[in-house]
């Protein structure tokens, strides 16, 4: 099993007190203080780390907006650590302007994505699952580091995420058949209700499940033709940022999914208040009820559809709830006569 975080090989951590406060923006010199080097990053195969004959190439994690990979326009980053507090990467700390750009990109992508045939969306989303599968090892390592899971469990989460993505991909051309209706009205009218995507959906990904949780909240949103602005799990954004790279290589048009990393509280506010966002999934604000309430209030300004936080077991079976939550029902009438 490659990609396993080599905790045992790491030097003993100095004292806890020396650990940088979680989430603080720190200087890279911290690495030396904690004795960590890039060798320990989960995306490096073990051999590389043990041979030490060559220095690994680091990957710079970037935002994913409109199909491109910008750094935050603010130039800010924050340190991402594993559950033990060890440095993993400097993730972009997106600003409200990045959030705004992401909404613009999502809005721009909406007509084409929502206008694509459901079959086409299903094909593209299935392609995402294929790409995810191909990067299984990388994601397993990232998830293990992010969530402090044993390697087998982390891999199982990645597998579940792939399977969940496949499940939702298959829904794209079926949801109208379970959520739509032919309505038998009392008159000479053809009357059909069909579900349509709500529009641009802001998604606050759950902090506790960096990939499976993310997939569980993102895939249902876009499967039906919405476009999304995702705020990655604040403490564990790396799988989300990597997912951006998967999406970019999976025929998903730019802007359909936009991934932001940073402070959930900082990004969620502007998204909840944004007049061109149609719906918001507050799952990521779940641990902070006061924040969730403020966001729901802000969302009222343009009557966003709000998916409230609730207790979730991401490993449990999937349901259509999230798929159906970001749909509008359009009912079309036409007379029948000669």
């Amino acid at each position: 099993m490659s990609g396993k975080p080599q905790k045992a090989q790491k030097p003993q951590k100095p004292q806890k007190s020396q650990k940088p406060p979680k989430g603080s923006t720190q200087d890279r010199h911290d690495e030396q203080q904690t004795g960590r080097t890039g060798q320990d990053r989960p995306d490096r195969p073990r051999e590389e780390r043990t041979t030490a004959v060559r220095l690994n190439v680091f990957r710079t994690y970037k935002l994913f907006i409109g199909g491109a990979f910008p750094r935050s326009e603010s130039g800010r980053v924050y340190q991402v650590t594993d559950t033990a507090g060890d440095w993993l990467a400097n993730a972009p700390r997106a600003s409200r302007k990045d959030a705004r750009d992401a909404v613009v990109a999502a809005r721009k992508a909406f007509p084409r994505w929502s206008g694509a045939t459901a079959y086409n969306r299903g094909q593209i989303l299935y392609r995402v699952a294929e790409m995810l599968q191909g990067r299984r090892e990388q994601f397993a390592a990232e998830v293990a580091a992010a969530e402090g899971l044993p390697p087998g469990t982390a891999a199982a989460r990645v597998d579940a995420a792939v399977d969940r993505w496949v499940w939702y991909a298959g829904w794209s051309d079926k949801v109208a058949q379970i959520a739509g209706a032919a309505n038998p009205v009392a008159g000479p009218y053809f009357n059909l209700s069909t579900p349509e995507p709500t529009g641009v959906v802001a998604v606050l990904a759950p902090p506790e499940s960096s990939l499976l949780g993310l997939v569980s909240v993102l895939a249902p949103v876009i499967a039906t033709g919405n476009t999304a602005v995702v705020v990655a799990a604040e403490p564990a954004p790396l799988p989300a940022l990597s997912l951006g790279e998967v999406l970019a290589t999976s025929d998903v048009p730019g802007g359909v999914v936009n991934v932001l990393s940073g402070r959930t509280a900082e990004l969620a506010g502007p998204l909840a208040a944004h007049q061109d966002v149609n719906a918001i999934d507050l799952t990521g604000a779940g641990p902070d009820p006061a924040l969730a309430r403020e966001l729901e209030k802000a969302a009222a300004e343009n009557l966003k559809r709000v998916f409230r936080p609730r207790a979730e077991d991401w490993t449990a079976g999937q349901s259509t709830d999230r798929l159906l939550a970001f749909l509008e029902t359009k009912t079309v009438w036409h007379p029948m006569g000669v």
Partner: peptide, 9 residues
């Protein structure tokens, strides 16, 4: 102009 039967009725 066409005639919509239902509307006319």
């Amino acid at each position: 102009p066409g005639v919509d039967a239902v509307g006319l009725q």
